[in-house]
Every structure is written in C-alpha cells, then in structure tokens.
Amino acid sequence: MDRALPQPTPETQHFWDGCKAGELRLQRCTACKESYFPPRPFCPGCGCRSVEIYTASGKAILYSYVINHRPRPDMGTEPHSIAVVELAEGPRMMTNIVGCPQTPEALQLDMPLLVTFESFGAITLPFFTPAGA
C-alpha cells in the first residue's frame, strides 16, 4: 500500500521543493523576526505579510513521541515512532525518528537529532535521525 503523501498547496510548495533539494525550509517574519511553521504567507505572531523563506540548520531535539504498535497499513507492520521535534530555530514539527531502534530506550526526550530526507516518488519527506548516528 502506497504511503499517504502530502499534496502541496501554493503556500507550502517551497517547503516540499526544499525537501526534494535536501533543505529544510522555514519562514520568518521580516518585522518581528519570528520563525514559524507550518508555512503560510503571513506571520501568525504579528499578522505582517512580509515574510521570507530560509534554510534551517536541520538540527533538532526529540520533543515528544509515541510508538505506534498498530501501524497504518501504508506504514508497514512493525511498531514505529511518530514524533514531534523542536527545531533549533524554534518551531516544532511532526516527523518520524529513523535510523535507530523504535524503542523507548533508544528514543530519549531531548536527544539531539539531524534532519534526513527520503524520497517517495514526487514527494520527499523530512525525517530525523539521532545526531552522530
């Protein structure tokens, strides 16, 4: 079964183009300088429509997660993490932690992570992996 994939919109296209290019692209307000996620063409902090796209460091920490023991049919049959990471730039995003056992012992809150990308045809998804792994 094919993995459920996003359908980009005009306001989010830059993010998905970035993933394809191996870059994690965020937006920030040119007025209040706040970085935010998910993408939108104005600042949710102050309402300013002057925002810019930039490439984030890809560094994050593991903020919270579950290990789903009843995976969706498109996610395979083994238990897998569904995580929220906190990016070094501030925003949090949902992802999967890959490249390590999917166990509570291997998934410690606040552990440092790095972004990694995996292609699924037309879409490339951003995952995170333990830093230094």
Partner: peptide
C-alpha cells in the same frame, strides 16, 4: 492531503 494536517501530520503515520 492538501490540508495542513494532510501535509504535515498524516504522512508520518498518525491514525
């Protein structure tokens, strides 16, 4: 899949 949840949560296996 074009909603914000469809783009930024569903691809990671939430049920």
């Amino acid at each position: 899949p074009s909603s914000l949840m469809g783009q930024f949560e569903l691809p990671f296996g939430v049920t």
